Amino acid sequence: MAMNARTATTALSESQSGSQFAGLPGWRAHNRADPDWWINEHFEGRSLAEVLRQRDISSLFRFLKSRGWSQAAVAAATGTTENQVRAVIQGRQRVTSYDVLERIAERLDIPRGLMGLAYVP
């Protein structure tokens, strides 16, 4: 799926690997986000669970930056480019593609159900 500026949606590239960013601030030893964040943390007055439920990827990326992740680290972890991360953070692009949302959830160890991507009892 290609980026469409009019609809502000994007299918982000999978060309980068997170392994090259091991050791960057905010990364755990095994190159993953802390899974407890998605349930227990808050950002800008909202729980991260709410941010994820609303699929607010801009807030998700801003949260990661607040935890010390660079845009390069966010891009690598989610299979996107720094330019795409910047556009999402700035609100110039929205992530609405199921495949991209699924990839972000998988690569950040976000339980899919928190983003409405799977049935959760």
Rank of each mutant, 00 (worst) to 15 (best):
A2G: 14
A2Q: 13
A5C: 00
A5F: 03
T7Y: 06
T7H: 04
T7I: 07
A8P: 00
T9P: 01
T10R: 02
T10P: 00
A11V: 12
A11K: 05
L12P: 00
L12R: 05
S13K: 11
S13M: 04
S13E: 05
E14R: 15
Q16C: 04
G18T: 07
G18E: 06
G18D: 04
S19D: 09
S19V: 13
S19K: 09
F21M: 10
A22F: 06
G23N: 12
L24N: 13
P25V: 12
G26A: 13
W27V: 06
W27C: 13
W27A: 10
R28F: 02
R28P: 00
R28I: 01
H30P: 00
H30L: 10
A33M: 12
A33V: 15
D34M: 03
P35E: 12
P35S: 14
D36H: 09
D36M: 12
D36K: 15
W37F: 09
W37M: 07
W38Q: 04
W38V: 05
W38L: 08
E41I: 01
H42C: 11
F43D: 02
F43M: 05
F43I: 08
E44I: 04
R46C: 02
R46H: 13
R46M: 14
R46I: 05
A49V: 08
E50F: 04
V51W: 03
L52C: 11
R53S: 14
Q54D: 14
Q54W: 06
R55E: 07
D56P: 03
D56T: 11
S59K: 15
L60H: 10
R62H: 04
R62P: 00
L64Y: 02
K65E: 07
R67S: 05
G68E: 03
G68W: 07
W69Q: 01
S70I: 07
S70D: 09
A72L: 11
V74Q: 02
A75P: 08
A75H: 07
A76S: 13
G79E: 03
T80I: 00
T81G: 08
E82Y: 02
E82C: 10
N83C: 05
Q84H: 08
Q84N: 12
Q84C: 11
V85S: 07
A87D: 11
A87L: 13
A87V: 01
V88T: 10
G91L: 10
R92Q: 14
R94P: 00
R94E: 10
V95L: 11
V95A: 02
T96E: 12
T96P: 00
Y98L: 10
D99A: 15
D99K: 08
L101T: 04
E102V: 01
E102D: 15
A105P: 03
E106G: 09
R107N: 13
L108R: 00
L108E: 01
L108A: 05
L108V: 06
I110H: 06
P111Y: 04
R112H: 15
G113N: 04
G113C: 12
L114N: 04
M115C: 09
G116Y: 08
G116Q: 11
A118S: 15
A118M: 13
P121C: 06
